[in-house]
Amino acid sequence: MGNRWLSRRAFVLHFLLVTVVPGCLLAGWWQVHRALSGNLLSYFYSVEWPIFAILGVVAWWQLIHDVPTKADFEKPRRERRSFLHRDDEVPSPALVWDEALETPELRRYNQYLQALSAGGERKRWGNPRGLPLDVLYEQDDDWLAAGQAGGRRDSASSGPGDEAAGGGGAGLPASSSATSQDVEPGPDRTDLLS
């Protein structure tokens, strides 16, 4: 969160420090003069003002080292919500998947996602060769079907998507797929790309 000594908040605190603390010390010095000229109460005040100066330094140190709260927890939650929401609003019904709305491309894509999910794979966003999406999905399906099972990409032209969903996923180890092989193409994928 940046340098705590140089933030905008810190400069306000520095300003307060260099005004308040010398002010307290000056007032203490003034009370010392008054005490020496015979005002008994000023003996006490000439001790009190330096204590205020010390407390000012302590407060400055404490506020510098404090992390100010960002969320304003004092406001009730309702006020923080978007104006698009209303408290009396009926919750919308859960989305139901309507297969009649599926275009062939969408169905293919969903099958591709199912195949990925069955194999524990994650969707890759990279498309380095700029392939049309359906070609890319087909290749992915084939790669899932053939490549992961052990046979390599000589089957690139053959496999229909249905086999990929069933066959390819079973051979994948489910655990290793989560983070390591999501973005970077694997070593067996490189010559397909080049």
């Binding site: 306000v12 307060l16 205020f52 407390l55 302590v58 407060a59 506020l63 404090d66 100010p68 709260t69």
Partner: peptide, 15 residues
């Protein structure tokens, strides 16, 4: 003042 400083530190008071 000491009590104020203590509370302000614990309860995240602004300056």
């Amino acid at each position: 003042l000491v009590a104020c400083l203590d509370l302000a530190g614990r309860a995240r008071f602004r300056t």
